[in-house]
Structure formats: C-alpha cells, structure tokens
Amino acid sequence: MRLLCVSVLVALSALLTTPARAAQAPAPEPVCKVGEKRLGELSGLVSDGDRWYAINDGGTKIEIFVLGKDCALQRVISNQADPYDVEDLARDADGTLWLADTGDNRKQRDTVALHAVTPQGKGTLYRLTYPDGQHDTEALLLDRSGTPYLITKNVLGSAEIYRPTGKLASPGPTVLEKVGSVALKSTDTQGGPVGGIGSVLVTGAASTADGKVVALRTYTDAYLFSAPDGDVAAALKREPVRVPLPGEKQGEAIAFEPDGTLLSASEGVGESIRAVRGAAGLVAPAENSSDSSGSPGQSADGQSGDSGVPMVPALGIAVVVAGGLLWGFGKLRRRR
C-alpha cells in the first residue's frame, strides 16, 4: 500500500508541475555559512543593512540571533516570553522586531500571536484570532504603516491572507479578517523536504525597505510582487516574478537588503545564507502586471493568466497530499 501511495504521489506530482518560466535573475550566491549550533532551525531573517537578525522555528523563549554579514554571531536578543511555534520575522521602521508565533500544523490553537521585541529585548505580546477556524501560518509581512499580514501555509489550496480588523491590543486577542488569497503554480525547482508539493507551500515572506516590493517564498522559489503604494493586499493579487532558489534542504527564511538584494536561508547548521543580487529590480511596475482588483495581467516573464495551481481534479490533489503525508510530510514537526 505504501509503495502504491508513493507511486501515485510521484505521478500526480508530475501532473501538478507545470513550471512558469522564471525571471532572468542571477543564481543565488552563497554569502556565508551559519555555523551557530543554536540556530539550527533558521526560519525567519531580516536585515538592517549592517547586520542580520535571525530566529529559529519554534523555541521555548524569545531568541533573536544578531549575525554579521559573515554569519558570525554578534549577540542574542532574548526575552523570557514562552512562544508556541515561532515561524517568521519582520522589522518595522523604528527597528522593532516582530516574531510571528503562528505555526499550527495540527490546527489546534485557539489564538496565534505576534511578539514585538525591541533591540534591547523588551517584548509586547499581541494575541490574534482567525474568523474562520485554525490555520498554519509561516509567513509575516508588515506594510508601511506597520500593519501585519499573515499568509497561511495550505497544502490543499491557495494561501490565505489575513490582517487585523483594527488596532492591535495587548494581550488581546484582536480579530483578523481575510483580505485575499494567493495561489502559486507548482514548479520543477529542486529542493525542500516534501518533493514537488513543497513548491506551492508558503514558508516565509519579506518586503523591501521602501515597501514597494513584497515577496513570498516556498521551499523552492521566491515570488516578488509589485507594491508601489505599499498596499500588501493589492500587491499579492498581482502577477509575481518568480526567482528560483534551488538546492535548499528546508528553505523557510527570506529577506531583502536595503539595496534590493534578496537573501534566502534554510534550516540546518552549516547551511548557507544566499543572495540574489538586484532581485527587487526585476519587478515590473504594477500597471504592467495587474490592477488592484486582482485581474490577471502580463507577468514579468512574459506569461499571462492567473497565478493559480493548474487545473487537476480535486481528488488527485487529495491523493498527492495523502501520499506526501505517508512519505515524510509528517516529519515537519512542531514541538508542542
């Protein structure tokens, strides 16, 4: 039975894999290797231009690792708050670091949370609730005003986009509202722990310093969206530019340098932080991709149409997911 499921998984993954042509982006270049043993599950990354800030997946207290651009550890910003499952990291205009405590593989959390942490380690907890049940979320974006957006990791369909309905309250909870969704086409980029289906699972997010480009990543690729007015919800309705990030064992972290260089990183001690030079400049102006209503337009790689997963029977997708679960997807653990 297991062999049959694996065979079905391979066959149906091939049907799902209809890769769009990637942008003419430079290949990712290794910058340095993360040798810090305490940072073996690197899941979120941001840059202030001079140094990098990184967080682990999960954890029992807040720890933000400050790295030089040689990957050497400079210090650790810590706070005794006990998170459930931290997944991503963002940085606002005043330097506050926002940790997305939003992982929920088993769909059992009544609330998720954001932790706002100053460079001195002072933390503020903001609890959040979804309007429509539990979601597993590994990606966080902040818009120019500091409003957070959560993008779900969904193995059965498009990733959903949520933001607070009002000003964040501490400890809350503040109710979230769904403001859109984004579907990514399966690609043939190699990498990740779960085969071809990993190319459509959103594992991280980032925005440029000016907020004019936002990015989502999967285990295998980055998708860059034009946001000329800083409107994240509108940006994620536009046709993205795809930047392949091949060869990462479990790629979950993504960030932008102030000059528009895209950074990516994978879990695992000794894995490299890699750079795609000039990535932000690959994004065409919004008027050349689609309008804010989400109508499909011309992509930067010359293709048109929506950005959804190719049409295959829903049963086929379910079998792919079932096979993936039997063949290692359950290895993506959450500690609590």
Rank of each mutant, 00 (worst) to 15 (best):
A93R: 09
G121W: 10
V117Y: 07
D94G: 05
I161N: 06
K122M: 10
W98P: 00
R144V: 06
E160R: 12
G95C: 11
D94Y: 03
D104T: 06
P119E: 12
D101S: 10
T118W: 12
E160K: 10
Q120A: 15
D101V: 03
T118K: 04
L141D: 07
V155H: 09
G133M: 09
G95I: 03
A139H: 00
T118S: 15
V112M: 13
N105A: 07
N105E: 10
D92K: 01
L141C: 10
R144I: 03
L150M: 13
A113G: 06
T137R: 06
A116P: 00
K153L: 15
D136Q: 07
Q134N: 08
D92M: 02
A159S: 15
A113L: 05
L156W: 14
Y126E: 12
T129D: 00
S158E: 14
L125P: 02
G157A: 13
S145I: 12
Y149R: 04
N105Y: 01
L140V: 03
G157M: 11
E138T: 03
D132S: 12
L150G: 03
K122E: 14
I151V: 15
W98T: 02
G95R: 08
Y130K: 00
A116C: 08
T137G: 08
K153A: 12
T102A: 14
P148L: 02
Q108K: 11
L114N: 02
S145G: 11
L141Q: 00
G133V: 05
T152S: 15
S145A: 15
L125Q: 09
G157L: 11
P148R: 01
L156V: 14
L141F: 01
P131L: 08
E160I: 13
T137V: 15
A139T: 01
L140C: 08
D92I: 02
I161S: 09
T147L: 11
N105T: 02
R127K: 12
H115Q: 13
R144T: 10
I161E: 01
N105D: 08
N105W: 03
G157E: 13
R91Y: 05
N105G: 13
S158I: 00
P131D: 09
I161F: 07
H115D: 10
G121F: 13
G133D: 03
G121E: 10
V117R: 01
G123F: 04
L99R: 00
E138C: 09
T147P: 12
P148N: 01
N154M: 13
D92V: 07
P131C: 04
D104E: 10
H115R: 07
W98Q: 01
L156S: 15
W98F: 00
G95D: 06
R109Q: 12
D136A: 04
L97Q: 08
G157V: 12
A159C: 12
D132A: 11
Q108G: 06
E138A: 05
L140Q: 09
A93S: 14
D132Q: 02
A100G: 13
D110V: 04
G121I: 08
T102Y: 11
N154I: 03
T152G: 14
L141G: 04
G157K: 06
L140Y: 05
T124R: 11
L150R: 01
L128Q: 02
D132T: 01
A100S: 14
H115Y: 15
